[in-house]
Design a protein around this nucleic acid. Structure first.
Lengths: 255, 255
DNA sequence: CGTACGGTTGACTAGCCTCAACAAAAGTGG
DNA sequence: CCACTTTTGTTGAGGCTAGTCAACCGTACG
């Protein structure tokens, strides 16, 4: 529902529809924390040289726009640090957050010539950049990479289809329970502890992700707390006290 | 919301979690109507022999189950005729129709070892069957095929993500308008006329696809008719009188 | 002819959204 | 360091929309 924050419009993009920050030479895959998670994991260690050459490193600040809906889709990215949101707006201001992107996630599974979403940094972020052209070239010369991309695209399809059930048929509390578990699982995969969730995004982002209003999201948090399923260390740091009960609430919907 | 029809449970699957009907030898790609639409289009005509050998033909009747959620995912399919629905159920009976599959559509973009949806024939259907194994082998030996699969998987991701906006933020009439346009566009791609939509599925299917109830769907149909945007040739055959207005209603959400 | 099924319509209800006030935290500038 | 503003999150009151329940209609089919 929320209109775009004036803050985001203030710092206009340095390239038409492109990202802020400057593209730096890539520091190398060797020490990359996401090497085992991202699409590049499909390439054997011996073959990273060619990819490193095509890659650039990009750092953007919280609140900055990586790419704008409607802009020409020149680049694809792998998130290596931080969190972004995938946003789409309707002409009248209704907003959807189609997903949150974390370390290891790939931005670029699309057949469209223009971005179909705006990508905004929720926290400070670091990304691996490839020109779409280079990435396509890499895929042609390395079928294992293409296979890995297909595998990850399919995984993303599975997860997006699960979101359809969430939005179509789950109640607000069920949606929030599922969201907390989903975020917890993803953070755990990145090495965080299992029973605590960090939510860097605002309630507004959560609401627009779950198809609700901020008030409803807030009330659902309160209800989960009253029912003893969660506890607040801070509004954005939540302890999952009864993950099993949350799981039941969420309808046992995996990921 | 509807529980599964008793009719569908009556005719139990002939294979555990598998499809009805019998797998026949493949008649050949040459005369295939969907040759230019499906994933196989990525293969040059000279290379179809190997694929034909791996393929089988399958025909199933309206109401039959092609594959059941939770069953081992042994086969993948390309729809060549008819329509199927992709269904998921919650333990308490809430139902989601995650999509309708038509000629040219591929069933098998998933990373899961088990089907995550039940596939049911809405009309009599014909499909191309491949064992998952054979298809993976084909992909390895024909990188163009894998590239084509990736392209189509990305297209499906784009379209699924658009559905998120529909379910999260559009009003019932808007959802229905978008649905009608979507179906019309897909049928047009298959050679049907542009201003008429055939809806072989029930109102129940539409409701569970749009996250609504049958009553709401019915009322929205009536409203669109009263507003002069559509006309009923029959409950399941609808004329799009004002496609432009429908487009506006649907929020200009492409596909 | 009777039944079953799919679809439409009406009356009522409940749950989520809207509007509004308030509280807490974080930034800003003197 | 403190007053002030801005942003974010919570809570309450009330209205509206879509869901629920029920009746009814038309068609298909035995």
């Amino acid at each position: 529902m929320s209109a775009r924050s004036p803050l985001l419009d203030a710092d206009a993009p340095s390239r038409p529809g492109g990202h802020h920050g400057r593209r730096q030479p890539h520091p190398g895959c060797e020490g990359c924390l996401t090497r085992s998670l991202a699409v590049c994991a499909a390439l054997p260690a011996a073959d990273t040289a060619e990819m490193e050459q095509a890659a650039g490193e990009l750092r953007i600040q919280a609140g900055a726009t990586l790419a704008r809906e409607g802009a020409v889709r020149r680049d694809v990215y792998t998130v290596t640090r931080g969190m972004l949101r995938r946003v789409r707006l309707l002409p009248d201001g209704r907003r959807l957050v189609a997903g949150f992107l974390m370390a290891g996630d790939f931005i670029g599974f699309s057949g469209a010539s223009h971005y179909r979403h705006t990508f905004e940094a929720v926290t400070d972020c670091a990304l691996c950049v490839f020109s779409l052209q280079d990435m396509q070239q890499l895929c042609r010369s390395h079928p294992e990479l293409e296979a890995g991309m297909l595998r990850q695209a399919c995984a993303e399809l599975d997860s997006t289809r699960s979101s359809l059930m969430t939005l179509a048929r789950l109640t607000p509390v069920e949606r929030l329970a599922g969201f907390l578990l989903d975020m917890a699982a993803r953070q755990q995969r990145l090495g965080a502890c299992a029973d605590r969730v960090d939510l860097p995004m605002t309630r507004n982002d959560i609401a627009d992700h779950l198809g609700l209003t901020i008030e409803t999201v807030s009330r659902c948090f309160t209800r989960l707390k009253q029912d003893g399923m969660i506890e607040f260390d801070a509004p954005r740091l939540i302890a999952l006290v009864q993950p099993a009960q949350l799981q039941t609430l969420a309808g046992s919907q995996a990921e």
